[in-house]
Design a protein around this nucleic acid. Structure first.
Lengths: 108, 108
DNA sequence: AAACTATATTGCAATATTACGATATATATA
DNA sequence: TATATATATCGTAATATTGCAATATAGTTT
C-alpha cells in the first residue's frame, strides 16, 4: 500500500494532519525559522542558506505554500516569502485544547 | 533518494520535525482525539474504534509512543494508553514564538 | 535581442510510509 | 493445561517522499 486512507477520517483530521505533515521535515522547519529570524519577507536567497539543492528547496517551498504556511509574492525576478500566522494560530489553538483536556483528566 | 538529510539540520529542528511528522497522519490524529474524548486512559478497544486493521493501528501507536506523544502501561492483558501533555506544550510553545515573531514583523 | 538571474518543473533513483494478512507473544480464564 | 483475548512483529505490496541534475520558464539587465 503506502496510500493513506483519508476517506475514513474527518475533514478536520485530514486537514490538521496535512498541516502538521508539512511542518514535519527538518528542512521545512529550517525554512520557517529562517523566515522568522529575518524578521521580514525574504526575497530570494533561501537557497543559499540551506544545505540542499535549488530544486529540492523549491519543492519544500511548494509544500509549505500548498498548506498555507507560507505565502510567496512575485517581486521583480525573485519571490518574496513570508509566514502566514493564522496557520500557526490554528495549530496553537488545537494544542491548547489537547493540553487542557489532558490536564483535566490525568490518570496515568 | 528518499532519505532525509537530518545531519544537515540542528537537533532541535530534527526533533520538532519528528514530533510534527508523528502527528501528521489522520489516523494518528484520530487516535489522539479518541484519547481526548474519553477523558481517561483507554485500556484496549482503540482497534475497534478506527477503520484500520489491528496491525496498522499497532504500528501507528508505536510511532506515537516513539516520540512520546502517548504512553502505554500494561494492565492485565491489555494496554492502557494516555496522552503526554508535555509534548503538546512543547509544540504550543513553539507555535507561540512563531506567531509572536510574525505579528511583530508584518510586511506582506 | 542576448545574456543573466531566480524560481519551477520534469524525470528519475533511493528510501520511507502505509496497510494488512499471517504469525508470534503474553496474559487471562475456563 | 487448553483456549480465548489483546497486542506486537514480520513480510510484503503499493504508494509517497526526498533529493538532485537537467531543463524550462519568467523577469532583468546590458
Amino acid at each position: 500500500m503506502g496510500i493513506t486512507k483519508s476517506e475514513h477520517f474527518s475533514e478536520h483530521q485530514n486537514e490538521l494532519a496535512n498541516l502538521l505533515k508539512a511542518l514535519g521535515h527538518p528542512a521545512r522547519v529550517a525554512i520557517v525559522e529562517y523566515l522568522i529570524q529575518h524578521k521580514q519577507c525574504i526575497c530570494g536567497d533561501i537557497v543559499s542558506e540551506l544545505p540542499l539543492s535549488q530544486a529540492t528547496i523549491s519543492q519544500h517551498l511548494r509544500e509549505l505554500k500548498q498548506v498555507g504556511i507560507i505565502q510567496g509574492n512575485i517581486e521583480g525576478n525573485s519571490i518574496c516569502y513570508c509566514l502566514n500566522p493564522s496557520v500557526f494560530e490554528q495549530i496553537n489553538q488545537y494544542m491548547g485544547v489537547v493540553i487542557e483536556s489532558v490536564n483535566k483528566n490525568k490518570c496515568c
